[in-house]
Design a protein around this nucleic acid. Structure first.
Lengths: 353, 353
DNA sequence: TCCTACGTTTTACATGCGTAAAGTAAGCGC
DNA sequence: GCGCTTACTTTACGCATGTAAAACGTAGGA
């Protein structure tokens, strides 16, 4: 075989540290220490090992290493679904922050299925992850599973949290603030806004409704909420927004109102319904149709018209969640003080409102 | 502690099979067999174990189990970045198919960094995954790493492949077909299309350019390609498309041409540029501006105007990739015949072209 | 030259489970 | 009651590594 002189595998493949130790001429425990921290062995030894490794093909067995270490250096993340740029940005923030903190992230996606979510939690426990971050599915989540995780290891909820778990650590948005400022803005530049809800797939849906109602009452306006019924599969937000407004516009309703959408994907659907009915959101000075969203979805600057919204710093949510979790893992969290961090939104004024 | 009667942890926590075996009154090897296949023990025993497990809190140690099994039941997936609904759909297709085939998916995201991509490959080898699926970064990928993976375990490329690795198994789109049909369509309803390229972040970018050129030559037209220069960070496709066309339109170029964009995200940017210049793609009968994309990004039905494109069945790509990989893992792949499967695109006629 | 101290290496045991081999108990037909 | 099969238990070892404790070597100081 060597006769062929193929360049593919000039390096001898070695499968265990034992073999490697005889190949290099160093004891196995010394190798073990080297792999965990090359500076923990004498520099001459370290150099000898490094040169030896260049001659062979060897990777330490992941399972054997993790099984014996006191800490696995892994954190588990569960998110409800991937088909949403909000969650991908969240995940990106989490992964980058975790990487910088020296942790490996294991991501599991629930695919909107509580059974999968529960299985992912089981997996994390059986892997002895150092900590877990969960963006819950919503009403369908199996809270018992999350309670178990929470009781067993450093645990935090991200993005949304059930009202039934008020004592669990949490990092997310301050909906009272974010929905509040855009409600107020819309009230100033036109008629008090109508709230176009999203299907209540998670707790944020309800929180934003409540924040809208609270702000409207504070401003002395009558809240109006439409679209609470689910016309489409829960996560088809654009289709939902489009269908609800299409029906309204067909009946001549709300064609000259400000419409605050529960999130940007609903708002993109709303823009589509407006275009279909020949309406041009945001172009009229007063009294015309306006559409605004929430989140600052990456496509907002490119819609027609561009979408006015409230930006959530999603990556910051991910980053902060990791920071707090790592503190909990390291036991830096003085006492049992609960961590609840709500990040503010920032108004993004564009064309649509 | 029990005195408080808190419901949180009425179950005794057990950490090893050894403990569990004495708690239930069954031998440890029997438990081991039960966990691998409950039907491999007598039904009365199986029932006894099941009842016993309800009384305690126990999860088998993931690492210890995987370390000793001949097969880990895991497949590793590497994707270049998450902030693109194309890749999230691909991942979804992969995860669902893998789950149905009884495999656990470990996903690693390169975040556009070859070093991270290489580390992910190392991780997969050290975890002894049964197989790996890689959607490469593009020109920046470290091909040596992929060669090592390919030499070591069942391996496939997905979505795009470097021309330097023609012999590696691959599942992706047939760009000659997909880009071909939309080029032909555009040529029929208007002037021969101009091709708005995307930054050459991966091999598909070049393949689509080539497919466009080939079809144009076949039709006897002169190909015109714009936007090959990267004006923005590589993955900001919308910004790229918008900036390139904005410049053209400002100079009065291409305002009445058909513009075929390398993908839908570029096309969404193109629509934005059109709107900015008061152009209304697709509305004119003949001789007016038309814009078309590629991929059938989930937002295409909601843009203004809605976007004509070629749909790739992304989930099918993921599903097929998993199927072929599983066949390779199970050794069902008769002989060393190379697997190359290219899926066709389907024209989606909407308003913009 | 000898002793001491420090850093490194070696020895030995541990981790949690898979699995083979051998022994034991239960079920069945005669 | 006997032999047989089947299912289970017991015993033992293996997996690839971590890690504590002991042994070792070397350099520095007296």
């Amino acid at each position: 075989m060597d006769e062929t002189g193929q360049p593919q595998s000039d390096k001898r493949r070695i499968d265990t540290m034992e073999e490697l130790s005889v190949a290099i001429g160093v004891s196995r425990p010394t190798l073990s220490r080297y792999f965990q921290d090359p500076s923990s062995v004498r520099s001459s030894t370290s150099e000898k090992i490094r040169r030896g490794l260049e001659q062979v093909e060897y990777v330490p067995n992941f399972f054997a290493t993790r099984m014996n270490r006191k800490s696995t250096g892994m954190i588990g993340v569960i998110i409800p679904y991937l088909n949403d740029l909000f969650f991908t940005r969240l995940l990106e923030g989490i992964e980058i922050a975790a990487m910088q903190a020296g942790f490996t992230v294991i991501t599991q996606c629930s695919h909107s299925d509580p059974a999968i979510e529960a299985r992912a939690a089981e997996t994390f426990m059986s892997m002895s992850v150092d900590g877990a971050l969960v963006a819950p599915l919503g009403n369908h989540s199996d809270f018992a599973v999350q309670e178990r995780l929470n009781a067993r290891l450093p645990f935090m909820l991200v993005d949304s949290r059930p009202s039934t778990m008020p004592s669990v650590d949490f990092v997310g948005s301050d909906h009272m603030q974010s929905t509040g400022i855009i409600t107020e803005y819309l009230s100033r530049v036109g008629d008090p806004p109508v709230f176009l809800a999203m299907p209540r797939v998670n707790f944020n849906a309800l929180e934003r409704e409540r924040a809208y109602i609270a702000k409207m009452q504070e401003l002395g306006h009558e809240p109006t909420i439409i679209g609470t019924e689910a016309l489409h599969p829960a996560s088809h937000f654009e289709a939902h927004g489009s269908a609800v407004l299409d029906r309204c516009f067909s009946q001549g309703q709300f064609t000259d109102r400000s419409i605050l959408c529960a999130n940007d994907r609903v708002a993109i659907g709303a823009l589509h319904a407006a275009a279909k009915h020949g309406l041009d959101p945001g172009r009229a000075r007063r009294g015309g149709l306006r559409i605004a969203g929430h989140d600052d979805y990456p496509l907002c600057p490119f819609t027609t018209p561009t979408l006015t919204t409230v930006a959530q710093d999603v990556e910051a949510i991910g980053r902060v969640a990791v920071q707090r979790l790592v503190e909990k893992i390291r036991g830096e969290n003085n006492a049992q003080s609960q961590v609840v961090q709500l990040l503010d939104g920032v108004l993004k004024l564009r064309e649509s409102a």
